[in-house]
Every structure is written in C-alpha cells, then in structure tokens.
Nucleic acid binder design. Structure first.
Length: 845
RNA sequence: GCGGGCGUGAUGGAAUGGUAGACAUACCAGACUUAAAAUCUGUUGGGCGUAUGCCCGUGUGGGUUCGACUCCCACCGCCCGCACCA
C-alpha cells in the first residue's frame, strides 16, 4: 500500500488545472455568474496563516459555486503602495519599487502551492502604472464632477524632522524617529466629497442584508447622523455671534459656559493680541491628530474673558477655549451643560464653573454631584423649569420641543448633521499614486490632460532623509502647464492607499482595459457576490469603496446596479498562536520561536516557558507560523483543512502544531480508506448499504448547508463524522465506492488536490471540480422515529422514542405514562404540560 | 474617551429559546509490536455514589420564561476600529 504524499499529488493536480485553464474566467451569458473576492494582500514579502485562512475560505466558496454551475470570477492582486516600502528603503536601502515587486514575486510563489482557484491572468498590482494611471483618470473625472476639492486640514507635524507623520508614526505623542513632541499643523490638501453622500451611504445600509449587522451598525455610527439645534450666542462686548450646534438643546438652561476650539476663528483672532491664549493654544495643539489622542488628553481650558448672553435667560456666560472641542465637527463651538455631560462636568469642577441641573430622575430628584446624570433620551425625566412648558417628558420630547420653540421664536433652527468628514486623500509621500494636477502661477491648480497619463513616479529618488522625495526631486516637478503651456510645477502629494483599494474590485472585471473599467465587463461581473476580509476594514475601506462605486457610477465607469459593490460580506477572524516567553534578569520578556519549545520547556536549556494563549501572530513576539514550512512538511490540503476546522470562520483560530498534525493524519486516513475501497472486489456485498447511504445523504445536506452559511467548521465536523462512519461500514463495494466518491466531492472545496486524486482513483469522470455538486435525496433524510427528552420542571429526567409524526396528544399520553414522570408527580396532576413536537416534553409540577 | 464585538471542559469549539459539551486536540487505558513509531479501540466537565442515580456547571450578579450558552439590565476581562498602518 502506498502512502499519502501531498507533495506528489498537489503538484500533479495543480498542473492539471493549469493545463485545462479551469480557473480562467470568461464571460458566458449562458451561466449565472459568481464573483468571489478576498481582500487583496499587502505585499509584505511573506504570506502568513491569516492569508491562508482568508484565501482558503474564498476558495471554498469559489469551488463550490463552480460545482453548482456558476461562471466564477476569483481574481488576485496586490495592494502594493504604502509606507512599508519606504520604511524598508530607509532601513535597509534599496528602492521601494524593487522591494515591492520582489515581494510580490516571492508571495506569488508562496501562494500558488495552496492550489487556489484563482484566475492569475487578471493579476495586477496597484503600483503598476497601468493601474494607477487609470486611477489618475478617475481622479480627473471626479474633479470634473465636483467630487474632489482642496481645503486646509491638520496633519501630525514633526518639528525636528520637518515632516508629516502618519498616525502610526506618532508614539505617545512623539515622532517615532526624532522623539520630538508632535504638533498639529494645517496644510492645504485634496479631499473627496464623501460627505455629500452621507445620507445615501447611511440609508443604503438598509439594503445590505448579507452584510454582518455589526458592520452596518459600525458604519451607521461612523456616519453619525444627528438632529440638533444651531443658534448663536451674542457677545456682550461687540454683539458678534458665536454659532453653536448642539444635539441636546433641551439642556440649554443648564449651560454654564460657551466653549470654542483652539482653532476656532475667534480663538485665532484673540491669540494675536493675547500672549497667554497664544501659549495655551500652542500647548493645546500638541499631540497627535487622532480622535483617540484628543479625547483622552487631559482636558484644558482657557478663560478668554469674553462673555455672551444666554438667548433665553439673558444671563451672562463666559467664553472658554477648550482643547477637546474639534473644529471639524459642528461649528467648532459648543455650550457646556455639566449636569448632563460627564466631560463638561469634569471640566467645570476643574475650573470651578457652575453646575445647573435641568432635569432629575422621576423617582430621585437630587442635584448632580460628581457624576453627570445622563439617562437615555427615551427615558422620562422631571424638568426643573423647561422653557417649552414641559414638566415630565423624555429627553427626545424635550429636544423636539426645544427645536420647535427656537424655530418659532426665530433664534435658532433645527439642523441635521453628520459626523462623517470628507476623505482627505493627500499624502506627503513618495510611494503612492501621484495626484495628476499641476500648479501654475497664472492658471492656478490645473488638471493634467488625460493623454499625458499615467503621470509616472520617477525612479531616481533618495529616501535617506525624512520627507517626500518628490518635493526635492530636481526635475520631476517641472512641467508645462496643461492650460497655458508655461513652466509650472506638478503636485507632489500622492494619494492615500485607501484610494487604490476602493476600486480594484471593479478593475478586476477588465484588468487590461484602456479606461478604468469596461462597462460591458463591469455590468456582467459586478457586483462582488461574496467579499471576504478582516473586521478591521469594517468602516474605512468598505465605506470608501461604497463611495467610490457611487462616484464611478456618476462618471459612467460602473452601471447603476453596481453602486453597492459588495452584495455579501463576510468578516473572518485572525489566526492566533501561543506566545512562548521567558524573562531576562531584569524581568523583561524574552520571546521564543515555536520550534525551539517542546513540552513547555526550551529545547536548548530545559528552562520552563510562560505560555500566553491565543495571541495575534506577530514577528516581534516570535509566534508566527510560516505557511511555506507547513506546506512543505504536510501539504497545502492539510493547511487548508486545518484553518477551516475547529473555529467558526468569523472567530479567531488558534494554530497548534498538534492540530496541524491531526489534520494531516485525517487526510492520510481518508487516502488510505480510498485505497482500501479501491481494492475491494467490485462484486463484494455486505451489510448496512442503506444505513451508509442514509448517512451519506445526511452528510451531503449538512456539508452543503455549512458551506452555504459560512459554517466551514461545521462542514468539516460532519466530514469527520461521515469518514468515521464509512471507515467502520461493512457495506458492499458499490455502496462504499459511491460513499467515497461523494466524500471526495464534499471535500473538494476544502482539500481540492486530495479530492481530485480520490476521484480519479475511483474512476470518476473528468475532474472532480467539473463534476456537479451532489444533491441530498430528501427521501433518504426522513427519520421514522425521534428521541424526545422529557423534562420535569425544566430538567431532563428521561427520554422516549416516538414516531416522528406522532400527534401532540399521543406524545402527552406516553410522557405521562413514563416511569420518571409518574414518580415525580406522585399522584398529583401536572400544572402544565408542554409538548414541542419533534423537540421536547416539559412536565411542570 | 467614544463606537463595535467576544467570553462554554485541560484546549479549539458544537448547540432555529428546547437533552450543554457534537467534532477535534490533549491526557489516560487497551490492542498490534521483541520494542518504539505508525495504526486501531475505548474512557474523560466537576462532585457524591457499587449502582439505578443525585447535586453543581456556559466570565460575575440580577431579570424575563414551563424552559436561557442563547433574550434583557448592570459589572468584569479580552479583542477590533477611531479618519495619514494596511
């Protein structure tokens, strides 16, 4: 008997698929199309287990759909622009382009042995000029349609390196290289007008039934639609207005001060003549630009000395500058109601400002001390003295009444606002798609002509000093103005890499087209029927892609039907691994590679290691498992089988060596089983043919259900079960052969190479990938009898076996005649008797 | 800080509001073997008990229900995102 040799059969079947061009996607109107896409990878140079899991899931879907008669598009590409290439160039020398293309070649080589059903003829990288040139064309189209504009925005500024920093380059408020305290600084930058589509992007979420509810909710919160009151406070000194926006106008009577952002025009005006305020603002602008940094920074305030008049009470309120007020949201000015907002309360306690209660809990009317009273807007509360005449009302009722009251009085109006900001796409970096515009002294900002695209990145750059090398390139910047022809200068900012990934799915439908898309191809292949990727992309990437699909439709690059580009979304979990650590003499952790550890001890020294379970794989923690070494020792099918088994796809899966070995053992077992059945006398009869086939049909039903509902782990559990049944079966050769062939088909999406080999071994016709998916015979699934548990007061005490179609009344009779029930009742009548047909009996005593 | 999620044996996990622990790992025992590996078989949530069986048990505390891992409230822990990481 020969042994299961993954290396041998995997190479063989990959060659067979390649020879027949099985995975080449060609338009075919006679079949339903199916577009399955996994989020494309960043070419770091090494694939990791997370990739294996992500692409295997997509591959299962793709292969399953092929078997069910679909014309499948399953492409692959590279999200190839971005900072790591520049960082590598700075750290180890070399050029971002060479580094990136080298990594792509390496990763492709590592990925191909997985046997994925990918149409490699459609492959591209976002750093290919053919791709980013079309992206530049899209930018110009968006510009023409008014979907792109320029305005000022804040960036992280490193005052020592004199360069813009990404958020991830700010560590604890300091630049990662220089260690200097980071400042927020304004630059003129390009923006996509995504906020114009806030309402559309929000309301269309309702139609995304096949997206996880949590992702829709996260997007909804991110867009952040709010209804509030906009009105002005009048300054007592010169009568000028300070416009504020509030979502809690009902608390207006509890206002204790008006707060403005350090970047509010009034604050900027005042700091010119107020050195103390100027110093305060410098301090307030320190730190990173992230919302997290701003929200968690200590709350600081500065009393401007100005006063404003409360529009209702006429009281004077002080005007403070506060570091936690964002210029980018609302009007950059608020009024604070400390009694009903914890942040305002902390601020007022710190600066000794008054706290005025505007409502109390119905049953507990006590003034606020050090904890703000913030009930849900739907709770009824008791109002201290509400101007709109309310006594007991919910917050929402009071908000509505206040807005109506303000509009009637003419001093304010109800306004709908969105938290969603326009998408800043400018990056002061080299390794990205150049923004195709030219700055001309006479004509201003001029779009490049489409015939001059792509505006290619120059190769001759140096990355040895911080900053954007395009800025200091001697000649690349110089060009002729596309409008007047005079000497002009190129824009040196490049695009955010999110732009690259916001339309690649559309490009895959016609990757070599001379325009961004080919409308016929896009109409045929779009939408993506199943998109698969990490939950970390739940908001930005997916929201930006939804915006792009709409903007591309406006420009005629996508059909109307493709404006929600992803019909179904699945977010998969990570692959984790234990971390093995010891401590050095100072107590700092020292990490060890999995291969250096056995039985909880270091192999070299025998020292015991601490084990941290279920940690995200990371190089610095040394808990990475390299798919390449797994494939070379066990084969791709084992790796694929393992990452699908055990954990549900949306959750993290922990890689364990024993689990991988067990997967391999199981596949060997299946292979041996195939060998054994193949050697049976074709005429041999046995016992239990019917039972085996019954189990086979149940396996077909359950495995299919698992694949269709992303329950791959459940499918695999069923396949284990069915394999065990088959291994123990004494059935005749015909039934066993049918069973193993069906097993091969059911395993084919997960372990395609092994499945092909078994299929061929058992004389299956053609390739298993081309064989139609088996269909469960309903008649074989019907069970004659069911086992019903009998509960007494909700606890299982006995069980009975009854015909599946037995009436409720008869089941009741049998249940009451049960020994355990009679004993428990002890002659009394049951209080209640619940019979759920086919499920359970509960006797309440 | 804000938004979203997760929490079940030694371990990964299963369970349309209906028998908690399917399937797998690990451990233990047995078969085969001169022996080991490989393979096969069996046991295994905790406690009490010879046993029929009984009690406890799904992060913690409450609630809804005939019945809760599942629904609701509060808390604890961990993970993801927070607009220049991809």
């Amino acid at each position: 008997m020969s042994r299961y040799s993954a290396a041998e059969i995997e190479a063989k079947w990959q060659e067979a698929w390649s020879k027949t061009e099985t995975f080449k996607a060609v338009r075919d109107e006679s079949k339903p199309k199916y577009y399955v896409l996994e989020m494309f990878p960043y070419p770091s140079g090494r694939i990791h287990m997370g990739h294996v899991r992500n692409y295997t899931m997509g591959d299962v879907i793709a292969r399953y759909k092929m078997s069910t008669g679909h014309n499948v598009l399953h492409p692959m590409g590279w999200d190839a622009f971005g900072m790591p290439a520049e960082n590598a160039a700075m750290a180890i020398g070399g050029h971002p382009k060479d580094w990136t293309y080298g990594n792509i070649a390496d990763m492709r080589d590592q990925m191909k042995p997985l046997g994925l059903s990918i149409d490699w003829s459609r492959e591209f990288a976002t750093c290919d000029p053919e791709y980013y040139g079309q992206q530049q064309a899209l930018f110009l189209d968006f510009l023409e349609k008014g979907l792109v504009y320029r305005k000022n925005a804040v960036v992280n500024w490193d005052p020592v390196d004199m360069t813009v920093l990404a958020n991830e380059q700010v560590e604890g408020g300091r630049g990662w290289r220089s260690g200097a305290l980071v400042e927020r600084r304004e630059l003129t930058q390009w923006f996509f007008k995504i906020s114009d589509m806030s309402e559309e992007l929000l309301s269309a979420l309702d139609g995304l039934d096949n997206w996880p509810a949590k992702v829709r909710l996260m997007q909804e919160n991110w867009i952040g639609k709010s209804r509030g009151l906009q009105f002005a406070f009048e300054r007592t000194d010169d009568g000028d207005a300070i416009e504020v926006y509030t979502t809690r106008p009902d608390t207006l009577n509890g206002a204790s001060f008006v707060g403005i952002s350090p970047d509010h025009p009034l604050s900027k005006e005042l700091e010119k003549s107020n050195a103390d305020l100027a110093a305060f603002n410098v301090e307030a602008r320190k730190g990173g630009t992230t919302e997290e940094a701003i929200e968690t920074a200590p709350k600081l305030g500065f009393d401007t000395g100005l006063k404003v008049k409360h529009p209702l009470t006429g009281d004077e309120l002080p005007v403070w500058v506060a570091n936690f007020i964002l210029m980018g949201y609302g009007t950059g000015a608020i009024f604070a109601c400390p009694a009903h907002d914890q942040r305002d309360l902390d601020f007022c306690r710190k600066y000794d400002l008054p706290v005025i209660d505007t409502f109390y809990a119905l049953e507990d009317p006590k003034p606020v001390a050090n904890e703000a009273f913030v009930p849900p807007k739907s709770d009824k509360v008791k109002w201290v003295d509400h101007f709109a005449g309310l006594d007991e009302a919910t917050g929402q009722e009071a908000i509505d009444a206040t807005i109506a009251f303000a509009e009637k009085g003419g001093w304010g109006k109800g306004v709908t606002k969105y938290r969603l900001r326009d998408w800043g796409l400018s990056r002061q970096r080299y390794w990205g798609c150049p923004i195709p515009v030219v700055h001309c002294d006479d004509c201003g900002v001029v779009p490049e002509k489409k015939e001059n695209l792509p505006i290619e990145l120059p190769y001759d750059v140096t990355l040895d000093v911080p900053g954007n090398p395009l800025d200091r390139h001697p000649t690349w910047r110089n060009c002729a103005c596309p409008s007047c022809g005079k000497d002009a200068q190129r824009e040196t900012d490049t695009m955010d890499t999110f732009v690259d990934s916001s339309w690649y799915f559309a490009r895959f439908t016609a990757p070599r087209a001379e325009t961004p898309t080919n409308l016929d191809d896009a109409t045929y292949w779009m939408n993506v029927d199943q998109y698969i990727g990490g939950i970390e992309h739940a908001i930005l990437h997916l929201l930006y892609s939804r915006f792009f699909a709409r903007a591309m439709q406006v420009c005629g690059h996508l059909p109307e039907s493709a404006k929600e580009p992803f019909d179904a979304l699945f977010t998969q979990g990570m692959v984790t691994h234990e971390i093995y650590q010891t401590r050095d003499e100072k107590g700092r952790p020292v990490y060890h590679l999995p291969e250096d550890v056995a039985d909880g001890k270091l192999i070299a020294t025998g020292e015991a290691v601490e084990i941290i379970p279920s940690a995200k794989m990371s190089k610095s923690k040394k808990n990475v498992v390299d798919p390449v070494s797994i494939i070379s020792s066990f084969g791709a099918d084992t790796a694929r089988w393992f990452v699908l088994s055990d954990s549900p796809p949306e959750r993290d899966v922990e890689w364990t060596a024993s689990g991988a070995e067990a997967s391999h053992k199981h596949l060997s077992r299946v292979w041996n089983l195939c060998d054994k059945i193949g050697a049976m006398d074709p005429a041999a009869t046995g016992q239990g043919d019917e039972d085996l086939l019954r189990e086979m049909h149940k396996a077909i039903r359950d495995v299919t259900l698992g694949v269709e509902s992303f329950g791959f782990n459940a499918s695999i559990a069923k396949l284990y079960g069915f394999t065990n049944t088959l291994a123990k079966s004494k059935a005749g050769a015909v039934a066993q052969k049918q069973a193993i062939k069906t097993l091969a088909q059911l395993m084919a999406p997960m372990t395609p190479h092994l499945a092909e080999d078994i299929w061929a071994h058992q004389g299956g016709e053609g390739l298993v990938i081309d064989a139609p998916w088996p269909v469960a015979d309903e008649a074989m699934l019907v069970e004659a009898n069911v086992t019903l548990p009998i509960q007494i007061n909700g606890k299982r005490r006995a069980e009975i076996s009854v015909p599946a179609d037995m009436s409720k009344e008869e089941v009741e009779k049998i249940a009451l005649a049960n020994e355990a029930v009679i004993k428990a009742l002890d002659g009394a009548q049951p209080k209640k008797l619940i019979v759920v047909p086919g499920r359970i009996v509960n006797v309440v005593i």
